[in-house]
Design a protein around this nucleic acid. Structure first.
Length: 505
RNA sequence: GCAGCUGUAGCUCAGUUGGUUAGAGCGUCGGAUUGUGGCUCCGAAGGUCGGUGGUUCGAGCCCACCCAGCUGUACCA
């Protein structure tokens, strides 16, 4: 026994491997989203995984510790570079760098991996995929309304039913108005404003009572851990709770207008405009103004949106779970202009691809069923000296557009059958010396065969019966189809499609 | 980061007040069946008991520290 330490195969914490089913399903989902984005006239753009750290923004917590939150490395000229942690900052860099030549407003989408160097948790990874769409170069709320409508269409394109999701819209200016009204304006209250926003963000998690504690002295969770609150007085807390707890209505707008200074009123007007645009598009049942939406990001300056799934599903332990947010976004008027001498307003939305995917699994979205895949037809190797012959059979199948492979291992027939089974092959092609001399092959349908096998109790009977197995000649005639045709029939009968390249003329 | 809980075979887990050589089911591989995936039967491989140190005649079990995982919470650009 080798006792010396063997290298342990293990993937880094917070990262995931993805198998063939997952890859296929994700591709199908992305294709559906992409189709929606392109229908709206957005064009693709791809940027690198790495950006200069300063281009990712002032949003880095600490320039002295560049690995806090992001993955960073130093170039040979000592410049700090980082793996991107979202797709918005790189887009802002790209738009600014190419501002002179881009059509304006610039409408683009992009999909890709982003990285965050932080503690992973259930459903939270250090590498994950986002799918974004943004309009850069217009301050019109029509751009915000359009993006919300596009997100609603994307939700349905991936198989979510109307009512299973809602796009919630709020406005940072309105939140600012509320805080101004309770005396939290000014630089000296910036930290406290942030605490208030965080507390509001927890409304669906802890309810109004939990938020009240967080706005005041603080809250203790069930493990006994204590979270310090924003330290507001009761007189300050009440208006905040009223604001986030009350449904959006003309009445609320009137009340708030009386309370607000100019900036808050402007926010209210923008929300009303969005509401009207959404109604004109026929999306009022799916896009809702909701004063409790916050979005943590500091760079948002106006409308913010969130795509939330409304259904509940039991998890593996039988507990009821809500998926919650599968995407979000908003207006970030300051981000592009960091690089340019002129103001460049922009708005965009980001879909969390992995989260959306696990939600689609939970509701059995048809888009995933379509992605289910058959393995290749396996040509068994009965006589090792006939490899050229088997390879030729395999090629004939491939030429007909049927995924096929010759068995490349060294095991016997039984193991080859098991291999084909595990590959989810619909059928195998068998040619021993008898068949070869007769110019035929045996074709065994593994899926039908498995059904038929249940009828046999003894293994001897099962083997003798050879269920779901047919013989076919290598070359067909007018009366008898050849083996390629027989395999093609079986392939298609199990839902396989022929991948014949389009004929060239 | 903070708090609580948990680490025994690839997976799910037993393991007595601390007592000889640490078990089961599933899975994997092989055989019964030299040319047929299922079922059944037989067999095999697979373990630094998370790590290090300590207590003890003796530790999977007790103690300390460390590491990892899970749950909650914080942060989440």
């Amino acid at each position: 026994m080798a006792n010396e330490a063997r290298l342990k195969a293990r993937k880094p914490r917070g990262f995931v491997d993805r198998g063939p089913d997952d890859v296929k399903a994700t591709e199908a989902m992305l294709a559906a989203i992409r189709a929606v984005y392109e229908l709206y006239g957005f064009e693709a753009v791809e940027t690198p995984l790495v950006e200069y750290t300063d281009a990712l923004g002032k949003f880095l917590p600490d320039q002295d510790r560049p690995n806090e939150g992001v993955f960073s490395l130093q170039d040979d000229d000592e410049q700090w570079m980082s793996l991107r942690y979202d797709l918005t900052a790189p887009l802002a860099r790209y738009a600014a760098e190419n501002w002179a030549v881009l059509p304006k407003p610039y409408r683009s989408y992009r999909c890709g991996w982003v990285f965050r160097n932080e503690k992973p948790g259930p459903g939270r990874f250090r590498q994950f995929m986002q799918f974004d769409a943004d309009t850069v170069g217009t301050g019109s709320v029509a751009a915000d309304a359009e993006i919300c409508m596009m997100m609603a269409d994307a939700m349905e394109a991936v198989g979510l039913k109307r009512g299973d999701y809602v796009i919630k819209v709020n406005n940072r200016k309105v939140l600012d108005g509320v805080m101004e009204a309770i005396g939290l304006s000014g630089d000296e209250n910036a930290g406290r404003r942030l605490s208030v926003l965080r507390a509001i963000d927890k409304l669906d998690k802890f309810g109004p009572d939990g938020v009240r504690l967080l706005l005041g002295a603080g809250r203790k969770d069930e493990s006994g851990d204590f979270t310090k609150g924003a330290g507001l007085t009761d007189e300050q807390i009440e208006p905040v709770l009223m604001f986030v707890g009350e449904p959006w209505s003309a009445d609320l707008v009137t009340k708030l207008t009386a309370l607000f200074a100019e900036r808050g009123v402007e926010g209210l007007r923008e929300l009303q405009d969005i509401e009207a645009l959404v109604a004109a598009g026929g999306y009022s049942d799916r896009i809702r103004i909701d004063p409790s939406v916050v979005r943590g990001l500091e760079y948002y300056t106006g409308p913010v949106y969130e795509a939330e799934l409304t259904f509940e599903v039991p998890n593996d332990d039988g507990q009821i779970v809500r998926f919650g947010s599968v995407g979000g976004g908003g207006r970030y008027d300051g981000l592009v202009s960091r690089f340019l001498p002129e103001p460049v307003p922009a708005t965009g939305f980001s879909i969390g691809v992995s989260r959306l995917m696990s939600a689609l699994k939970a509701v059995n979205s048809p888009i995933l069923a379509d992605a289910a895949d058959l393995g290749p037809v396996v040509v068994l190797v009965m006589d090792k000296d006939q490899a050229g012959n088997y390879l030729n059979l395999t090629k004939q199948l491939r030429d007909a557009g049927i995924p096929a492979e010759m068995y490349l291992g060294s095991s016997g027939m039984k193991a080859q059958m098991k291999y084909a089974d595990r590959r989810k092959s619909p059928c195998v092609v068998i040619q021993g010396s008898n068949e070869r001399e007769a110019g035929v092959v045996q074709i065994k349908d593994l899926i039908e065969g498995a059904k038929a096998a249940e009828a046999y109790k003894s293994n001897a009977d099962y083997k003798a019966a050879r269920p779901a197995q047919v013989e076919a000649p290598l070359v067909g005639t007018a009366e008898t189809p050849g083996f390629v045709e027989v395999v093609a029939d079986i392939w298609q009968s199990h839902g396989g499609i022929l991948r014949k390249p389009a004929a060239r003329s």
